[in-house]
Computed example of a mutant assay.
Amino acid sequence: MSEPCWRGCANLVCEATGGYERPLIEAAAALGLPLRRIHPSRARAFARAKAKLAKTDRIDAAVLAALAAFTADEPAPPLPSPAQRALAELMTRLGQLKDQRQAEQCRRERTESALVRRSIAASLALLDAQIREIGAALDEAIAADAERARTAALLRTCKGVGPVACRALLAWLPELGRLNRRTVAALVGVAPITCHSGSSIRSASITGGRKPLRDVLFMAALTASRHNPVFRSLYERLRAAGKPHKVALIAVVRKLVTTLNAMVRAGKPFQPA
């Protein structure tokens, strides 16, 4: 029997396609193949760098093959467990339901028709019931896993991290406690990116990362900057130095993430000192 053609592959990549790539990634993991998922914007930028402006299936395949060779030294991230994927799906669904409820509430404020208002009220009642159901399922999944339950208890010792932020961290940042502070900040998308070239010096900015998680942690940082002395001190110091409100809050998010990462890694609750 001849050797399979993929046996000699040192590195494989595929584009993220909104979840449709998951069976391919799972099959590759079962076969021991080093398959990594690439963001489509990164693949497109690599194609432009190679002067490949056209986009066809054949060109895309050649670009991905070249990108696989170019990034061969990048380690493939570990495949999340089925339980972790289920937790992330529940958290994503909860966010979708909350977005739908917010949209319905905005529509209710603008409508004058009694029939439409009744329709919106029925929709809101259904959404509220589903939000409670998904929230309860999330809490049950966290409580059913001893390690997650311990991590959740640690996270909640930090004033500013409420139930919503705790769920989001457990669902969308399973690497918490296993990475260094720079890497975990980059995963969330709050690591400052400098843009200096010659005499042109622009302010550092943030980009990329896991936006849904960053949005949740932004609200957590807002609470922490008001009620947690450690983060309030940082926020007030930056504001006194002339930093804009949002810049100071992003710095609080970054310190919050790195602090929680250190807490989980050490297995110790939040210490104000």
Rank of each mutant, 00 (worst) to 15 (best):
L97T: 04
D99A: 14
Q100G: 04
Q100A: 15
R101G: 09
Q102N: 12
A103H: 14
A103G: 09
E104V: 07
E104I: 02
Q105C: 07
Q105E: 12
R107C: 08
R107K: 15
R108C: 12
R108E: 10
R108K: 13
E109T: 08
T111W: 08
S113A: 13
A114I: 13
V116F: 07
R118M: 15
S119M: 11
S119E: 13
A121D: 15
A121R: 10
A122G: 07
A122C: 11
L124N: 09
A125V: 07
L126I: 06
D128V: 01
D128A: 07
Q130F: 01
Q130G: 02
I131A: 09
I131D: 05
R132H: 05
G135A: 08
A136P: 01
A136M: 02
A137V: 00
L138F: 04
D139I: 02
A141Q: 13
A141T: 12
A143Q: 14
A143M: 02
D145G: 06
A149S: 15
A149D: 13
R150N: 11
R150H: 12
R150C: 04
T151L: 07
A153E: 15
A153H: 04
A153I: 03
L154G: 03
L154C: 03
L155H: 06
R156G: 05
T157Y: 03
C158F: 11
G160M: 01
G162S: 08
P163G: 13
V164D: 07
V164F: 04
C166M: 02
A168T: 00
L169R: 01
L170E: 01
A171M: 08
W172Q: 10
W172I: 02
L173C: 05
P174D: 05
P174M: 00
L176M: 11
G177K: 04
G177D: 08
G177I: 02
G177V: 09
R178W: 01
R178K: 12
R181W: 04
R182Y: 04
T183I: 02
V184H: 09
V184L: 13
V184W: 10
V190K: 11
V190H: 06
C195L: 11
G198L: 03
G198K: 01
G198I: 00
I201Q: 11
R202L: 13
T207Q: 10
G208A: 06
K211W: 10
P212N: 06
D215N: 11
V216D: 05
L217Y: 01
F218V: 00
A221C: 09
L222M: 08
L222E: 01
T223H: 05
A224M: 00
S225L: 00
S225A: 12
S225P: 00
R226S: 00
N228R: 00
N228P: 05
P229Q: 03
V230W: 01
